[in-house]
Design a protein around this nucleic acid. Sequence first.
RNA 1: GCCGGCGUGGCGCAACUGGCAGCGCACUCGACUUGUAAUCGAGCGGUUAGGGGUUCGAAUCCCCUCGCCGGCUCCA
Length: 658
Amino acid sequence: MPTVQIVLPGNAHSGERAVTTGTTAAELFDANRSVIAARVDGTLRDLAYELRDGDSVEPVTIDSADGLAIVRHSAAHVLAQAVQTLFPEAHLGIGPPITDGFYYDFGVDRPFTPEDLEALEKEMRRIIRDGQRFSRRVVTDDQARSELAHEPFKLELIGLKGAAGVDAETGVEVGAGELTIYDNLDAKSGETCWKDLCRGPHVPSTRHIPVFKLMRTAAAYWRGSEKNPQLQRVYGTAWDSKEALKNHLTMLAEAEKRDHRRLGVELDLFSIPEEIGSGLAVFHPRGGVVRKVLEDYSRRRHEEGGYSFVYTPHATKGQLFEISGHLDWYADAMYPPMELDEGQKYYLKPMNCPMHNLIYRARGRSYRELPLRLFEFGTVYRYEKSGVVHGLTRARGFTQDDAHIYCTLEQMPGELDSLLTFVLNLLRDYGLSDFYLELSTRDPQKSVGTDEEWAEATETLRQAASKQGLDLVLDPGGAAFYGPKISVQAKDAIGRTWQMSTIQVDFQLPQLFDLEYQAADGTRKRPVMIHRALFGSIERFFAVLLEHYAGAFPPWLAPVQVVGIPITDEHVPYLRDVAERLRARGVRVDVDASDDRMQKKIRTAQKQKVPFMLLAGDADATAGAVSFRYRNGEQRNGIPVTDAIDEIVTAIDNRIQV
RNA sequence: GCCGGCGUGGCGCAACUGGCAGCGCACUCGACUUGUAAUCGAGCGGUUAGGGGUUCGAAUCCCCUCGCCGGCUCCA
């Protein structure tokens, strides 16, 4: 019997092996039911793949990242089949796997309703129970066109095959090489129940989709362009086990509980009054304290870091943003101008940098002054489109902790290096610890400057980034028009990633503003400018920390750090005295002297997520002590007041979480 | 900006198929004085987002505006 040689990498059963010609990957991994696909020479394949001489074959299990993506992709197919069963007139868009799930876009006459979703889930369960086989078939372009003649979007994709600019999601459908169609075959008769143009791979049969759930519907532009028609998108999630799905849903519920918009109301931190306008927030006293502490600490660190503090106005003549180029690039996203003084146009500022440049330019500069680091909490206004405004994270007015560093070309690498370290350490002080870096590079369509300048700036940034020993991922074409950037991405307590700080190198604005300094040799030279925001937006950073801590801020940030809870009214004066001593040490403390019962006061303080509750009754008062209750329900009784104060002050000073 | 959904006291919600706008929390007042997550009672509070329309009658049906939510697009 003819055989082929294959390689099985890995430790347990590694090594070369001869198998009969015609052996499939499925037969190879027959023993392990959790294997749903194979990786052959690095490429993911269906289990039905016939092994060829020299193939290096690895199993792909259902609980691996690749395995889950395949399950989700297959679930998207089942969804599409269900849609076309219930809505035969629906046209197919694309249906890729995404983080935690999948979606599929459809061209339909009317949007899907929640009832439709239920019916679709039911139909999907039927298809999965049927155990239809996913069967791959290579087709020519002409064959595909004739089989999919009634699918206008798919025809468009066939036309795009292999063309430049096909995005990753579209690529799921057509890939780069040969075209393939996946037939869904009835388990018994082998009849084709449904088919879709798809690169695959897929699970062997619909029964290999253990658990899924349809989540929501939404409109989405065909191929991601707002010039194109909108399709109806159905989002779903799929997992390798019921438990995994349950964990996912629990995570979503947890995220909802932490939503900063919700906590902002519950904890009385901020609001976004309709009367002021969409995306324009006010901070209430409690939120104001948190914000003030955030800012004060940042100020102190910047002072220590050699920054100079500057202040600039909120409005300016349009000329400033003509010089900077912002009006060319971002006019649509700026508040429209006000006309004053006989037609003079004034804009609310969307950026601080041009104003900082004017400070630099206010007089001649010497190389001895560089690096010059200008820092400001500068409030900017951007006219965000109505559909994107979102709580504090996407607002129309927000405050950047904005710094611009002017330095010589030679100083730039060292400056970037220390800057990144400074930024990361400061973020760590606020309680974020899990980071990776992203390097955004030039988009030739949306940028100015020479190739050499961009190459140099990008390389310098890359080197500074790699020194930090963090993961560095590329974001091709993601840079702003004037220079490449590094952004710090931070993971929060429930694993979500937020873009935090950005550091951008800029050769352009110094030119546009004709910035100069006099060098040691007496010549005039152009400084390099580094843009840097640490929080990005203070409002947004506030929201991220609020969600990260689920409202339970560490004591140094908590709006109210201590609440005194008397057992009876008689103990109020005693606690007021303790509170006075705490206040003298700078602690934010309240005594709950309301006529609620003690238990109710505990509940109130607990719901407000106050880090320390200090209780006192007769026993404590006679002993000159207090009893702690912490947010986790723990208690420590009879602590001498001096010790209690020290414990609290120490926790605050060291910025530890309790 | 686009698609869909939703706007009822400060907050969370109820009110059939068009028929007296109600509940809980919060708040105010009174009583109670209690050792680790809700004491009892009374009271205040709404032109049902705003405007227009249909109807004998609109929170409810229709139209417009504003706002919010989920996505898409965008994010210097």
